[in-house]
Simulated assay, not measured.
Amino acid sequence: MNFRVVSALICCGLALAQKKPVEEAWDLLAAGKREQAVRVLREITKVNANDADARLLLGSVLAEDGNRAESIPLLQDAVRLRPNSAEAHHALGEALHSFGERKASRAEFATAVKLDPGFGQAQADLGSALFDAGELAVAAEHLDRAIQIFGRSGDAAYPRYLRAKIYSERGENEKAAADLSQAVALRPDFAEAWSDLGQTCKLRMDDAGALAAFQRAVMLSPDDGVAQTRLGAEYLSQGKAHEAVPHLQEATRLNPENQTALYSLQSALRDDGRIAEAQEVKERLVELLRKRDRASENALRAIQLNNQGAALEKDGKLGEALEKYQSALALAPEHVGIRTNVAAALLRLGKWKEGIAELRESLRREPDNPALQTALKDALSKTPAKRE
């Protein structure tokens, strides 16, 4: 699901017809004069606090530019001014999704669909959000509705692509192949759909179809490491080791830690008589596996240190607990739970600046976490003014 400002522009089209300043901004955007359009829209929002169209359009443009701080409040204002507008809720959902706020975006898509069940893009985006959340059965319902609404238009390609993934999860390969075939027919440049079609053909024992689909995927998206890996592996499985090598080499260049590509490349080089190169790749593969083993060991050790910290904190030994938490975090910096424990210990020790910084970092990594949102708000409200 890609965030597209054009959807927000189209959504507010009817209202724009009666608002010449906003219409001017529309024309500037269409002419590629983005900065001028933003200036016009900013001026409108300053003069008229109740102009939902200007807020909707400006918020969408700024969100596409990656400006969360300004875009989300503007789109929330548009929703406040037009609570029954499916288009406004959808635009806010798209913006939230673009900033990784999945739970909040899904709620906006759900509201948009409730307000207007015939809004195809909202149905598609809600289906996609539910798919990402692993709620496949409910996702399928919304994707099917989007497909029905879009009909034979190119907009139906992505919902069909996702619908095929759900069929594949259920082992319904014939249905998956049918939807993927429709997706690439509607959008012949849809590289990911071609790649998945190749996988489906392979499961259906259609080697020729698989190879053709993988070739098309790589032609359309040569920087897609998955597509390169799949094509190389297919050449190898068909006894064409020499043809497999360049694709597998490209896959490992794109992702040096692609274990599947490294393993296949080693086999392809060996089958192609390039023994020394195959041995070199084997050594890279062995080192990668060692690295992953070390990462697993670090993760396990981090959990142990975190648990020791929790036990010390329970005994009232907060300073010692903080040391354990910080040691654990050094081993597992991506672990939000451990980072939150560090933050809580810092705050309890009166180290407000450091504690709040860790809470903010935790929330940056998990922006939809309501417990973290509440904890940060609470910490900020209790921070001594002189430390703020």
Results as ranks from 00 to 15, higher is better:
132 D>C: 02
229 T>V: 04
283 E>V: 15
64 E>K: 14
8 A>H: 03
133 A>P: 11
246 P>Y: 10
316 G>P: 08
155 D>A: 10
98 S>F: 04
80 R>F: 12
346 L>A: 03
115 L>V: 10
6 V>I: 13
336 V>R: 05
57 L>C: 10
380 L>M: 15
339 R>T: 02
250 E>N: 09
375 A>L: 14
366 E>G: 02
371 A>M: 06
294 R>I: 09
251 A>T: 06
37 A>D: 07
14 L>V: 07
320 E>H: 04
255 N>P: 00
25 A>Q: 07
167 Y>N: 03
98 S>P: 01
257 E>I: 14
225 G>H: 06
262 L>T: 10
141 E>N: 06
272 D>G: 08
379 A>R: 13
30 A>V: 09
211 L>A: 12
289 L>P: 00
288 L>D: 06
275 I>E: 12
257 E>P: 09
120 G>P: 01
287 E>M: 14
22 V>E: 15
87 E>M: 07
128 S>E: 00
261 A>V: 09
216 R>K: 14
55 R>A: 03
163 R>W: 00
145 R>G: 00
132 D>H: 08
125 D>V: 01
310 A>K: 14
317 K>R: 15
126 L>G: 08
212 A>V: 14
213 A>V: 02
146 A>I: 02
220 L>I: 05
62 L>W: 15
311 A>M: 08
316 G>S: 08
336 V>K: 05
322 L>H: 07
267 S>F: 02
133 A>F: 09
138 V>R: 03
155 D>E: 11
99 F>Q: 07
340 T>Y: 12
352 W>A: 04
18 Q>W: 08
284 R>C: 05
220 L>F: 07
